[in-house]
Design a protein around this nucleic acid. Structure first.
Length: 854
RNA sequence: GCCCGAGUGGCGGAACGGUAGACGCAGGGGAUUCAAAAUCCUCCGCCCUAACGGGUGUGCGAGUUCGAAUCUCGCCUCGGGCACCA
């Protein structure tokens, strides 16, 4: 017998011991091993907010279960971790509390890593990096230059939220009810020249390739398809009447050319060149456009705003009737970024157009009617699915009765034949604006020269490092007002020049970190052999909130990296399989400050609906995604300290299916701890038994064991970790009650340790060691279920009468259908229900059910 | 507003179109204990019944099917995303 043992389950002793053993064995270092298949599992890396929360624990435990399971199955596993470390919170902290964003960030990383380490994750920490490491963003700058050269980056004007008091650009989340979050000033929309990635050049390719992402959730694929938003429509030009010089034609794009004869007005975006032209000379237009610009920059704000227009007095001629003139409005709901920034309105078949027409007293002639209902449109637009047949009363192409889709195609063909515009395919996807007017990001490595214009920095001058000597006590971007950093020489002509002061969107940082993990210390962004071996990510795991932007940008960036020689062709879709975990939610506690603005409080600051500090009552807002800004986060450190990492890990995996949201409750943690303590005690008891000869009960236990192996293997493969845990409960219950021999029990206990190891690796090692397992369970091969032990001779079949369960029979598993039917018809309940008559129908589903229809 | 999801006991959740509620939590009863904690056994959707048993039941309303939590259509409620939060 081994030496000292605790009298009870003691994770505080067990967990550090095994973590040290894994470190000693260098168990989690990823190595290129040509002899073994590789497996790359990646969880979306965290923003270093300074504390881990339950969402992190859930995310990383899922990845760890996969990593440990795949390792046991013989794969060479890469399971890295890093930090998405640039971004606004660091600057906000510097503004609020002083200090430097770098200091704040690296300090947070140290704290969070300290909180993550006790979780016992099988991470190769030797590959760790932060995106704010100059070694990382310097390589990003090199790639930016390559992409610039390859024509993947360009500059154009774009609209931002401008805070006129703080003299700064605001993020959408910093705009609250149209006002700056800090200054309270009315936010303006302002145009700046900014850098863009040409992601829209890849619209079609990114859309087409979605069909190949077989192991992505269908809903994410659908969301991305809708986001890219391919549409087929007609682009044509109205000729204008009384328009300023240079605006003789007004280009519009419509996806419903079949409704052209139902047009009642034309509308242009407030950002349309024509609107800008009118704004210059007409104060009324200027006032209206200014009002529109106060709405904000988000699509949501535009869509929710009351639909308003301004009649410019300009008219356009209908392309099919020169005498028919339509008024041209500037309308607040037209997006300049989509189509041509100008549309015609057909109120009868678009609710937004109808609301607009009713507001301004414009007609709304019906173009088509339902086949079974001829009532004209009044307050509700008639907008049937395009696949539905309708009767055209103002159609001009194709049959009178046809589907919308047919009519659209017919209308395009007709218009093209008459020389009125052409059919075009457009995408909703816009180019990716990467400029940020902030300090704490990757500097864009270009120089502005008076004579040469915009010039890329030379690669040998990289990395272009952020200056450390900055302060945040004044409004605006510290890079703009830095005394020396901006000053440089033009890489082309050598004259004095100024650096670009915009930094990159943090989505750029997170669009290639997965590739960097394959060669994290390289002097180039990637290394061909490493990328070749490790890419693609076999399993990517992260929050559903990243379903569109991060994942779409990464898909684009991988293509851009391939084009510039930084990734092999096979890596243009970097994530083979995607799993989107549900979020961990929690209630939100809110009070308001003197100016009525919301102030949020951490759960630990609240007790019985009141602030601990002041006793002020808090407003409880129903559960929502845990977020730093709402402060509804729970600190897992406390759970780990009182119950151990295995309890935290087991609990977050057991409580709900991984793809669904889970509301954090502390109640379950204690119950999990009790269960793990029971398993530990069970193992101790079994370990103390003396080996004995086989017993008749052994077969039953072995069957249960093989059943458990099979169940846990299949459920982990299917990402159904909560079900895997339910099966482990069942097997544990059987093992604790078995009358099998000690030899069989010990074997079962070793298998239990192996099956638990992905979820509760420390306890598993402890059991494995106590039951005489060889080496570390972390390095043991995954057990295999014996198919012969999974089948049973008899089967219980429910008997239904008219679909309702009335009885049950036990028959041999291989009993023929006809025999099963005979047995079923001999059941008392069936005889009673038939009352002498013969059944109308008997359905026998072998091994499943018998249904007697009377 | 637009796009995408999710709704099953007191709670978290199981259920290839085939016995709804596996497994866990909470709760009731019991054993052990001087007593409690811990542990173990046991019951546990709802309604009627002393019990046997019967009825009913997966957000709401229709439909398809021998059979629907599961498929179809229409609603309701909650959540995510909406391009400068990460």
């Amino acid at each position: 017998m081994s030496g000292q043992h605790d009298a009870r389950y003691n994770p505080q002793a067990i967990e550090p011991k095994w973590q040290a053993a894994w470190d000693d064995g260098d168990c989690f270092a990823a190595r290129r091993d040509p002899a073994r298949p590789k497996y790359y599992v990646l969880e979306m890396f965290p923003y270093p907010s300074g504390r881990i929360h339950m969402g992190h624990v859930r995310n990383y435990t899922m990845g760890d279960v996969v990593a440990r399971y795949k390792k046991a199955q013989g794969f060479s596993v890469l399971h890295p971790m890093g930090w998405d470390a640039f971004g606004m919170p660091a600057e906000n902290a510097a503004m609020q509390q002083g200090g430097h964003p770098a200091e704040w960030t690296y300090n947070n990383i140290a704290v969070m890593k300290g909180q993550m380490k006790p979780l016992g994750l099988s991470i190769d920490w030797s590959r760790e990096f932060a995106t704010c490491d100059v070694e990382y963003y310097g390589q990003q700058q090199a790639m930016f230059l390559d992409m610039l050269e390859a024509g993947l980056v360009y500059r154009k004007n774009a609209v931002v939220n401008w805070d006129p008091v703080d003299m700064t650009v605001l993020a959408n989340e910093q705009v609250i009810d149209g006002k700056g979050w800090r200054s309270g000033a009315e936010v303006e929309r302002r145009e700046l020249t900014q850098w863009f990635f040409r992601i829209s050049d890849y619209s079609e390719e990114l859309l087409e390739a979605i069909d190949g992402l077989e192991h992505w959730p269908e809903k994410v694929r659908l969301m991305q398809k809708n986001w890219i938003g391919r549409s087929r429509g007609l682009q044509f030009a109205f000729s204008t009447v009384d328009a300023p010089e240079g605006f003789e034609r007004l280009e519009v794009y419509t996806t419903r050319p079949d409704t052209l004869l139902g047009a009642s007005f034309a509308a242009i975006s407030p950002d349309h060149p024509l609107a800008k032209q009118l704004e210059r000379h007409d104060p009324e237009v200027a006032a209206f456009v200014a009002e529109c610009r106060r709405i904000g920059t988000t699509e949501e704000a535009l869509e929710k705003a009351e639909k308003k227009g301004f009649d410019t007095g300009i008219r356009v001629r209908h392309p099919f009737d020169n005498a028919w003139e339509l008024p041209v409005y500037i309308a607040n709901f037209i997006l300049m970024d989509y189509g041509t920034g100008a549309v015609f309105g057909c109120p009868a078949h678009d609710q937004r157009d109808l609301d607009f027409a009713n507001r301004y007293g414009l007609p709304h002639p019906d173009v088509f009617l339902a086949l079974d209902d001829s009532s004209p449109v009044s307050d509700t637009a008639f907008v049937p699915p395009k696949s539905e047949k309708v009767r055209y009363v103002r159609g001009f192409a194709g049959d009178t009765v046809q589907t919308g889709d047919e009519a659209v195609e017919a209308a395009i063909a007709f218009c093209e034949s008459k020389g009125v515009g052409e059919g075009v395919t457009k995408y909703r996807l816009r180019d990716w604006g990467l400029s940020r007017q902030r300090y704490w990001g990757c500097p864009i490595p270009v120089v502005h020269c008076d004579s040469c214009g915009v010039v890329p920095e030379k690669k040998e001058n990289l990395p272009l490092e952020l200056p450390r000597d900055v302060s945040f006590d004044k409004p605006g971007n510290p890079l703009d007002r830095h005394p020396t950093w901006r000053n440089c020489t033009c890489p082309r002509c050598g004259a004095a020049a100024l650096r670009e002061t915009d930094t990159m969107d943090t989505f750029v940082d997170s669009s290639w970190y997965y590739a960097r993990f394959t060669a994290p210390r390289a002097e180039t962004p990637t290394v061909a052999e490493d990328a070749e071996y490790w890419m693609n990510v076999d399993q990517y795991i992260g929050g559903i909130e990243h379903a569109i932007l991060h994942l779409l940008y990464s898909r684009f960036f991988a293509r851009a990296m391939h084009k510039t020689g930084h990734l092999p062709a096979k890596a243009i879709e970097p994530f083979d399989a995607l799993f989107t975990q549900g979020m961990v939610t929690h209630e939100i506690y809110q009070t308001r400050d003197a100016r009525g603005r919301p102030v949020y409080h951490l759960p630990e600051e609240v007790e019985d609906g009141k602030l601990r500090s002041t006793g002020e009552a808090v407003q409880v807002i129903p559960s929502a995604k845990m977020s730093k800004s709402k402060k509804n986060v729970v600190d897992p450190v406390n759970i780990i300290e009182s119950f151990g990492a295995d309890t935290a890990r087991w609990f977050v995996m057991s409580d709900s299916p991984p793809e669904r949201d889970v509301e954090w409750t502390s109640a379950g943690a204690e119950a999990t701890f009790k269960h793990l303590a029971r398993v530990w005690a069970l193992s101790e008891r079994i370990a103390d038994l003396d080996t004995e000869a086989p017993d008749p009960h052994d077969d039953e236990l072995m069957r249960a064991m093989h059943r458990a192996i099979d169940d846990v293997t299949r459920t982990i493969d299917g990402f159904a970790f909560n079900k895997a845990i339910a099966k482990l409960y069942e097997f544990t219950n059987i093992l604790s009650r078995t009358k099998a021999s000690a030899t069989a029990q010990k074997q079962a206990a070793r298998v239990l340790a192996q099956l638990m190891a992905p979820m509760t690796p420390h306890l598993a090692e402890e059991i494995w060691a106590r039951q005489g397992g060889e080496g570390l369970v972390t390095q043991a091969p995954w057990p295999k279920a014996d198919p012969a032990m999974l089948v049973s001779d008899t089967v219980v079949l429910p008997i239904q009468i008219n679909g309702k369960r009335k009885a049950e029979i036990t028959v041999a598993a291989d009993l023929p259908k006809e025999e099963v039917e005979k047995v079923a018809l001999a059941e008392d309940a069936v005889i009673k229900a038939l009352a002498g008559a013969s059944p109308r129908k008997v359905i026998v589903v072998p091994g499943r059910i018998v249904n007697v229809v009377v």
